[in-house]
Design a protein around this nucleic acid. Structure first.
Length: 357
DNA sequence: AACACGGGGGC
DNA sequence: GCCCCAGTGTT
């Protein structure tokens, strides 16, 4: 026997150790009540780049409001966005509804059970495709997310940068090799559960790990060095003056953002990009941009809001205007009760504490 | 291959 | 502050 054989990966034992642990410790999550492909789908979209604890209340409300693909397909887009408010990455909501409408129109309301059709739907990439096929349809397909990349790169001691597409593909291929054919749904979810509770990014709890004896990183004492991941670049700061513009009826001006890009179609208080406009021309700019004659009043406070790629620095000012019949369909005057019906980004929800009757 | 795209939580 | 999170679409 050579050394290669001694360190060879014991697939059967690995599966058994992982799955027994999972059957004993799996969390009772709302999307694990049944295997309804639509519910699995909704949960997987919500869980993209988002923690389980954050998703749970959104998932309950969303499924309560849109229990089937038909309900979501028929829903009003703004209401869907309102249901998504605060969850972030709002294109997920738009893409989900687009895809659900496609399922109703082209697949008789049945979520496709094959990789090609499923993966062609808007918002369903390699991860979500694998997650739905394995969890809802019991197919032995990899579902490689951040957890899986971390766990597998440690288990197999893969020292490639997991930020690279190539590495993701390597890991997907490895998972295809070692996935349980008997219970692929549990296998994929087991690795994700393990990644969130034991095989954590920092200080993994290797002493409690059910697959410790299969872990090459642990064997070599390098579990804290893996996975290797290149750093994201620093966010650029963008200063704005945000305006709480009130008219004589105690209504505030809100505007709808454009239908693509950052926070697409959400509503906000008018913001002036200071770097482009300058402070001197502020009121002129507001008039040219919105057709509103405003008078800047009191400085109410400052707000910093961090996105994944930029940072907004908001200076908040109160302002006054007179009611005008604006041509701009994306502009509205609303009172502090009506405002609650519009989907707002968190940054502007924080500004609402400065509103007054 | 790089970047845009939210928000929250751990340390 | 930095890093991470059940990623995908666009360029």
């Amino acid at each position: 026997m050579n050394e290669e054989v001694l360190t060879e990966f014991n697939k059967q034992q690995f599966q058994q150790d992982l799955l027994s642990w999972y059957y004993q410790h799996k969390r009772d999550l709302p999307w694990r009540q049944d295997q309804d492909p639509y519910k699995v789908w909704v949960s997987e979209i919500m869980l993209q780049q988002t923690k389980v604890d954050t998703v749970i209340p959104y998932f309950y409300r969303f499924i309560d409001k849109y229990p089937t693909v038909y309900d979501l397909a028929a829903a009003d887009e703004q209401e869907v966005l309102k249901a998504w408010e605060g969850l972030g990455y709002y294109s997920r909501a738009k893409n989900l509804q687009t895809a659900v409408r496609e399922v109703v129109a082209s697949y008789g309301g049945v979520v496709p059970a094959n990789p090609k059709e499923l993966g062609s739907l808007k918002g369903i990439g390699p991860y979500t495709r694998g997650a739905i096929l394995s969890i809802a349809y019991n197919q032995p397909e990899p579902a490689v997310d951040g957890n899986v990349m971390r766990v597998i790169s440690r288990i197999l001691k893969i020292e490639e940068d997991i930020a690279k597409v190539k590495t993701r593909n390597i890991i997907e291929k490895e998972v295809r090799e070692i996935i349980s054919k008997d219970d692929p749904a549990s296998f994929n979810q087991a690795i994700m559960d393990l990644g969130s509770s034991i095989c954590t990014p920092k200080a993994p709890a290797c002493t409690f790990c059910p697959i410790q004896e299969h872990c090459r990183a642990y064997a070599d004492g390098v579990q804290d060095e893996l996975p290797i991941k290149s750093k994201a670049k620093k966010q650029k700061k963008i200063p704005y003056i945000a305006l709480l513009i009130k008219n004589e009826n105690n209504e505030y001006v809100i505007e709808q953002r454009q239908d693509s890009g950052l926070l697409a179609n959400l509503w906000q208080f008018p913001m002036v990009p200071i770097d482009e406009v300058g402070r001197k021309d502020l009121e002129n700019w507001v008039f040219s941009e919105y057709g509103l004659k405003v008078k800047i009043k009191e400085h109410k406070g400052n707000l910093k809001h961090v996105f994944s790629h930029i940072i907004w620095q908001l200076e908040i000012y109160e302002a006054e205007t007179i009611n005008v019949a604006s041509e701009d369909q994306r502009l509205r005057f609303v009172n502090i009760h009506e405002i609650k019906g519009y989907p707002f980004p968190v940054s502007h929800q924080k500004m609402m504490k400065y509103l007054s009757e």
